[in-house]
Amino acid sequence: MDEAAFLERISARLGRSIPEDRPPRNVQGAPDFWRQRSSGAQELILRFQAELEKLGGQVERFEDRSAMLAFLKSLLKDLDPTRIGVWGGNFMDEYQLEEVLSPYEVVTWGNQGVEAFQAAEVSISGCAFAIADTGTMVMMSSETHGRSVAVLPTVHIVILRQEQIHGTMGEVLESLSQMGRSLPASVHFISGASRSSDIENDQTIGIHGPARIVAFIL
């Protein structure tokens, strides 16, 4: 069926022609009481941490980069991956990951793609936003920030800066709305590890995506 006929049918059923202007609305988005909630930065970090931990995620907070790198080093030693996938671009430099990652085979997104990341056990990325209410981290796709980085490996480590943590999803959605046409092809909200309860209601982790999520807050 062609578009015009399809839409005309809808208009006809609604008993008018298709409106040219945006229909006026008195109710849009979340209720006022919800939008007016505000919290301090510290509170947001704590809430984010608590929520993500409830979902089985691991949260580590660091005073500075060197503390984070030290922790990462020992974590990777534990995990003992052969291959690690990381965001491309200047991500490695930004956090000076080179040295810590040097014992491992490292693939970077952009230089490599799906095939290379498929065999990476661990991935390390940043995120665009985090949401305190739901323990969520938001990934946006780009040339150097492939979607696969967050979904293919078994362990996903996310480095985020505390100012990226917002209170509600609404704040993040507003930012997306303002991006207009520059919105990336994929915006991915991740809250905890991949899970399923489809086998007799018994929850199991890591069904398609990562089985372990670690958030580093700087």
Partner: peptide, 9 residues
């Protein structure tokens, strides 16, 4: 929230 909320544009 579900573990994944994915937006494809």
């Amino acid at each position: 929230l579900t573990t994944y909320m994915s937006m494809i544009t």
